[in-house]
Simulated scan of single mutants.
Amino acid sequence: MEFNKFKVSSLMDITARPDLVFLRGHGSWLEDDTGKKYLDFIQGWAVNCLGHSPKEVVNALSEQSRLLINPSPAFYNKPSVELATSLVDASCFDHVFFANSGAEANEGAIKLARKWGKVHKKGAYKIITMKDSFHGRTLATMSASGKPGWDSIFPPRMEGFIKAGLNDIESVKELIDDDVVAIMLEPVQGEAGVIPSDKKFMQDLRKIADLNNLLLIVDEVQTGMGRTGTLFAYQQYDIVPDIMTLGKGIGGGIPLSALLARDSVCVFSHGDQGGTYNGNPLCTAVGLSVLNAINNSNFMKSVVVNSDFLSQGLSNISDKYDMNGERGMGLLRALVLNSDDAPAIVELARNSGPTGLLLNAPRSNLLRFMPALNVSKDEISLMLEMLDNLISKILKR
């Protein structure tokens, strides 16, 4: 398949992509090979927390690439030590392992929990995860996920993952036996439709974990790094998890993720965990620049202000068209429609001209919004105006 001057059939066909090729981006905007510009409220699925090609990332890449790119994870390097120290100082955790993707970080969390169960719980290995959850696309993280239909893909599925209902503490209690080692969940289920965990539910999970000698794992691949209005979402629940995973926003667009754990949980022996690119100085230098930008009181205040502004704007649209409201935490939000028009709205938004709008529909009746954390109020206003017009056009059809 070819369009314009690009032959795209050389790429493996693993998702439905529109017929456009992006050439450049800056902040909240992308530009394709025809020169058309798009207001981006997906940002790589919450990856580009500082927008496209932010100066922090560009400068870190440029400076570090002239110094050292990858000496091997068998040696210490300055950026990885500095980023690990900063993450530990900013959280309740003691140690960090760097990886390349959220799924890889979650694989590490699963391995660490099972190793801890082997050492401290007579080989306990089962992990309670949540229905409709999403933890990645590796074999283990697909088995851990509760996404409908995934239990029948790539059989046999990895055993040891049992599903409870989000915000249903009784369903968690019913699953606990001597073989259970941990409870793992997203503070906000992103792929399921931006469904936040209740504060009481999270606090009850911590109590149940303590009572039954279980680990509590929070998957903050999507919610971490300021996305929900605090540096980490768990901080809004007043709990102390045992393990946390980060991805997406931690690299600001560069492949980087992290597995963080409390000292008492860190039972890996040498050789249990590793990877060719893990903790390389190029990516961790970028991660440090992103963390320094986000972990600033004025920056986070702006995130909270813009979150409220976006939330109110989406609520106004919902009221205007008699929809089912909006929900979310921080700048991870969803508009719940009263129809299955979300995919049509996404397509119309992208194809509308002369300026396009990039939106995401994880469910047919729901739109998800993941703008850059430094999105401006004017850009939010423009998105809301465009969305209002799009919905009106869809309804007239």
Results as ranks from 00 to 15, higher is better:
157 R>N: 12
196 P>T: 10
228 T>W: 01
191 E>H: 09
203 Q>K: 14
256 L>D: 06
219 D>G: 04
190 G>P: 02
165 G>S: 14
166 L>V: 06
274 G>I: 11
186 E>Y: 00
188 V>K: 01
166 L>S: 08
269 S>I: 00
196 P>M: 09
203 Q>I: 10
156 P>A: 14
161 F>C: 10
239 I>N: 09
188 V>F: 02
174 E>A: 15
176 I>R: 05
189 Q>C: 05
262 R>H: 02
189 Q>R: 13
182 A>Q: 09
243 I>L: 09
248 K>F: 04
251 G>Y: 01
189 Q>S: 13
250 I>Y: 00
214 L>Q: 04
222 Q>K: 05
174 E>M: 14
239 I>P: 05
230 T>G: 05
217 I>R: 05
177 D>L: 09
251 G>K: 07
250 I>T: 03
254 I>F: 12
237 Y>H: 13
200 K>V: 13
208 I>S: 03
194 V>H: 00
190 G>H: 08
183 I>G: 05
219 D>I: 11
274 G>D: 05
272 D>N: 13
159 E>N: 15
156 P>H: 08
174 E>Q: 14
204 D>I: 03
217 I>W: 01
156 P>N: 10
209 A>N: 03
260 L>K: 01
199 K>F: 06
251 G>I: 09
259 L>H: 04
247 G>E: 07
175 L>I: 05
244 M>F: 01
253 G>Y: 01
260 L>S: 03
171 S>P: 07
223 T>K: 04
199 K>V: 15
211 L>H: 08
236 Q>I: 09
229 G>P: 06
212 N>I: 06
202 M>E: 01
213 N>Y: 04
187 P>M: 07
222 Q>E: 07
239 I>Y: 04
156 P>E: 07
272 D>P: 06
227 R>V: 12
158 M>D: 07
189 Q>P: 00
178 D>M: 06
241 P>L: 06
267 V>K: 08
160 G>H: 04
247 G>Y: 03
183 I>D: 04
267 V>R: 10
178 D>V: 10
192 A>N: 08
267 V>E: 14
173 K>C: 14
263 D>P: 00
152 S>Q: 11
220 E>P: 08
201 F>Y: 15
231 L>H: 07
272 D>R: 08
210 D>P: 00
227 R>H: 03
177 D>F: 04
240 V>E: 14
268 F>Q: 06
253 G>M: 12
239 I>Q: 02
151 D>P: 00
212 N>R: 10
257 S>N: 06
274 G>L: 11
231 L>C: 09
201 F>E: 06
250 I>D: 02
230 T>D: 12
200 K>A: 15
239 I>D: 06
218 V>G: 02
177 D>S: 11
174 E>L: 14
207 K>L: 14
207 K>Q: 14
168 D>A: 12
197 S>N: 15
243 I>M: 08
218 V>K: 00
236 Q>K: 12
255 P>Q: 12
222 Q>S: 09
276 T>D: 03
210 D>E: 15
193 G>N: 07
275 G>P: 03
187 P>A: 11
255 P>I: 11
154 F>G: 02
266 C>Y: 02
208 I>D: 06
231 L>N: 08
259 L>I: 07
205 L>F: 04
197 S>G: 10
266 C>P: 00
185 L>W: 00
263 D>G: 12
177 D>V: 06
216 L>T: 02
268 F>E: 08
206 R>T: 12
153 I>F: 12
232 F>H: 11
241 P>E: 10
162 I>N: 07
197 S>D: 03
200 K>S: 14
201 F>S: 11
220 E>A: 10
